[in-house]
């Protein structure tokens, strides 16, 4: 079995506050892996530690068989990342950010045709700030895939999007996954998790609370949907 991500014993403190408690996590090559948990459970910190944008206090990480190091830039030819916030210079147009991002990689995609796949072709000259939430999110995914990555990391994928935009994004991700891209995503949308993910990991207070396929998690919890399962398992149901 090849793994896209192998993480062992991740420990991270913010000051005296321990956020990750020896987390183990493996993502198989070619799967869509969902990282779920309440706000503050440590999802974004886990992603930062995996990518090396935050320093681990303990533990080892291998991504695509390399230890990530933000200084070893060639590593990021193969990893596409979209952080929670869409981080662009205000006021750039779609064309400008595409051209800049395109110039970063050795084997970039043809972004003009991809814009059409993402139904964004008529926005080439629009300022990013005028795009709707869904359009911006699609643009973020397109930019994250610009270098033809083997691994795509998406933090809070479709938060705040309407059902149509969400479905378009799901379709795009499935297509990428069919092409062989491994995807690690975080989401609060359990329907999204159920629809997209091959396996999931439920984080609670910086620890693995449960791990497995959607079916496994459903049967362990005895719930009918991931929404119910999530509430039951975390014990964070509405009282």
């Amino acid at each position: 079995m090849t793994y896209a991500i192998e993480a062992e014993g991740l420990v991270k403190y913010y000051g005296n506050n321990q956020v990750l408690h020896g987390l183990n996590m493996n993502v198989k090559a070619g799967e869509i892996f969902g990282l779920i948990g309440a706000n503050g459970a440590g999802k974004s910190t886990t992603i930062d530690c995996l990518l090396g944008t935050k320093k681990l206090d303990q533990g080892t990480v291998k991504i695509l068989r390399n230890s990530p190091n933000p200084k070893q830039k060639s590593h990021f030819e193969q990893i596409g990342v979209q952080f929670q916030e869409s981080a662009f210079q205000n006021g750039l147009t779609v064309k400008e950010i595409c051209e800049i991002t395109h110039s970063l990689y050795k084997n970039p995609i043809d972004w003009r045709t991809k814009l059409a796949d993402y139904q964004l072709e008529h926005h080439v000259r629009s300022s990013i700030s005028t795009l709707s939430g869904g359009e911006r999110q699609k643009l973020c995914i397109l930019l994250a895939t610009m270098g033809q990555p083997k691994l795509l990391v998406l933090d809070e994928l479709t938060t705040g999007l309407d059902p149509i935009a969400r479905r378009q994004i799901w379709n795009n991700l499935r297509r990428l996954n069919d092409e062989g891209v491994t995807i690690l995503l975080t989401s609060h949308d359990m329907h999204e998790i159920e629809t997209l993910c091959d396996r999931i990991l439920l984080l609670k207070h910086g620890n693995v609370f449960m791990e497995g396929t959607v079916q496994e998690v459903l049967s362990k919890s005895g719930a009918k949907s991931m929404d119910d399962a999530y509430l039951q398992l975390t014990g964070e149901g509405i009282r």
Binding site: T53, K73, F83, E85, A87, F88, Q89, Y105, K106, G147
Partner: peptide, 18 residues
Amino acid sequence: SSYREKKVLKRYKVTPIS
């Protein structure tokens, strides 16, 4: 400051350029 606050700098950290 704005690039730092809007995480533009962080975004470039996870690309092939610095």
